[in-house]
């Protein structure tokens, strides 16, 4: 914690960044934006920080204040690599203050982040408990699965906190806001809720780093990570896709190979 604060303070004092995006040292660990060196004493990090701060990097308010530094646990480091691969970060304008558990790992630029991930976190895998839940759901009948999601999606209030929390959701105009034609009903009712959550997850396929920020942000507690996890597993098994490691990676959907499996095609 002390090392993190000192590193952040140093960056601001040396004017290498104009803003440090981190977590505040108070209950709930909300996002905290340190603009002055003396603010850095309020920074903190521990396992209860579930927000993915890389989501702020696409916001115009933050873009206006580049260069910035972000407090980043491993999943957020991966998000930074995904955003780099998608040309969403101006080169050299984002630094990562890498943290993991109780330890502060140092300050890294985009290339350094990719290197750190390869060296230290190349075997990051989804939590076994999450995959077990996916497997458990897949073992049920289609009708039971539908009933499960019917009950879950009926709680959705369409606040779009899942979208706001996700660093991958940076479109300036989201499909759900397009109304000519309106593809996704905006009423907080059955089919609109279903289509929204399914498409939100699908738009993250091959890009999601399973940081869990969407599910943590959901005020209704929808199990959104089930959707993300099934796509992540499929992308890995079918295409060997591991988003967030290669800053030069081509987008999974948007590229193709003549050897892709199509055994399900008739």
């Amino acid at each position: 914690m002390k090392a993190l604060r000192e590193a952040a303070e140093k960056l601001l004092r040396e004017k290498r960044v104009s803003l440090v995006i981190g977590y505040e040292d108070r209950k709930g660990r909300p996002a905290f934006f340190a603009a002055k060196p003396e603010d850095c004493g309020r920074l903190a990090y521990d396992a209860s920080c579930r927000q993915n701060l890389a989501a702020y990097l696409g916001k115009p308010e933050i873009r206006a204040r580049l260069p910035v530094a972000v407090v980043a646990p491993p999943a957020v480091l991966r998000s930074i690599v995904v955003l780099t691969a998608e040309s969403q970060l101006p080169p050299g304008q984002v630094l990562a203050l890498a943290v993991d558990g109780d330890s502060f790992l140092g300050t890294f630029d985009a290339a350094g982040v990719a290197e750190l991930l390869r060296a230290k976190y190349s075997t990051l895998a989804p939590e076994p408990a999450l995959l077990e839940r996916v497997q458990g759901l897949l073992q049920k009948s289609p009708a039971e699965r539908a009933a499960f999601w019917e009950a879950e999606f009926s709680k959705c209030t369409r606040c779009y906190a899942c979208r706001a929390a996700c660093p991958g959701c940076y479109c300036s105009r989201c499909i759900v806001e397009k109304n000519a034609p309106q593809w996704i009903s905006t009423a907080a009712l059955g089919h609109g809720n279903y289509t929204w959550s399914v498409m939100r997850a699908f738009h993250q396929s091959g890009r999601c780093t399973l940081c869990g920020a969407c599910e943590a942000a959901c005020p209704q507690g929808l199990p959104l990570m089930l959707l993300n996890a099934v796509l992540d597993r499929e992308a890995l098994e079918e295409f060997g896709s591991r988003p967030g490691y290669d800053p030069e990676a081509k987008p999974l959907i948007g590229s193709w190979s003549a050897d892709d499996d199509h055994s399900y095609m008739r």
Partner: peptide, 12 residues
């Protein structure tokens, strides 16, 4: 390939 697995999880 990806989308059919997502739909399968939701009962289609």
């Amino acid at each position: 390939t990806l989308f059919r697995k997502l739909l399968a999880l939701t009962g289609i």
